[in-house]
Design a protein around this nucleic acid. Structure first.
Lengths: 139, 139
DNA sequence: CAGTAATTGAGAATCATTCTCTTTTAGGAA
DNA sequence: TTCCTAAAAGAGAATGATTCTCAATTACTG
């Protein structure tokens, strides 16, 4: 993911390209494990000492609205963010709060077929998120 | 769900039976739509004008730890609570924040079988929660 | 019914997030 | 390129959910 790639993503959505938005997107792509706003701020401060906390939250909101990133919720009351927009699920470790991406095309197809047959009356599904809660055995 | 039923649940878990815990559990069972702590406090204040906010949060934490209730997360940063412990999923309406329970034994079996075969290396699944995000058509 | 550890109340403290308002800036137009 | 304007960012106060502290109260044990 180059700087130009990131810039293109913003332009595609009709968003102005600002250094702050570039830096925040770059941070989300670099930081693994679904960073919190705080993680992102810490990361960015190295290169942009003057970025305001409020700006980070504002930009994150804009990026979510424009579907460049996703919010990820856990049972902790801190929001986390995910830069991967392809369909995937999450393995959530309740002990360590680690969230691992879980891509499973076969499962997605299975679920899609299942819900095509079993129509949910009055509800239009837009996204199916499977949260697999558990613990990582080994390290 | 009678008062005695609720009391039994507390005793089963080895928890002391206090009026506050009784009232909070009763509130969660009565309030539909996965109440927030605030919803619960409002509900309880009618009968228990002196209950402290902090107590409600503390009790909610204890009830979650003891598996009498579950936390439910949405993209809003307010925690919601669920008194139904049987396996079920959620239809989450992104427009109205309504959360409807979705019980589907067939789906649970399908998922269970699927993950029995497809072993996830290094991860022990304890709970599978499907969040179906979308919108309710009518109403 | 007394003793004790657990629980609660009251309110301050914390911490993530939002808001307000002023200043700055990106990007289109001249 | 330079100008213009709406959009974005900065600074820091405000908000609001949740947690913490500590003294007073209470549920259960014996």
């Amino acid at each position: 993911m180059t700087t130009d790639d990131i810039k293109s993503k913003l332009i595609e959505r009709g968003l102005k390209v600002t250094p702050q938005r570039m830096a925040i997107l770059e941070a989300i792509y670099s930081l693994k494990n679904h960073p919190t706003a705080e993680n992102i701020i810490d990361y960015i401060l190295k290169k942009h000492p003057n970025i305001a906390t409020g700006t980070v939250y504002k930009v994150l909101g804009v990026l979510v609205e424009n579907q460049l990133i996703k919010k990820v919720t856990t049972e902790k009351d801190i929001m986390r963010y995910d830069g991967i927009m392809e369909s995937h699920h999450h393995l959530y470790c309740m002990e360590s709060d680690v969230i691992k991406d879980y891509v499973d095309v076969e499962l997605d197809e299975l679920l899609q077929k299942y819900f095509e047959k079993k129509n949910l009356p009055g509800f239009k599904i837009e996204d199916i998120v499977l949260q697999l809660k558990g613990t990582f055995d080994n390290r």
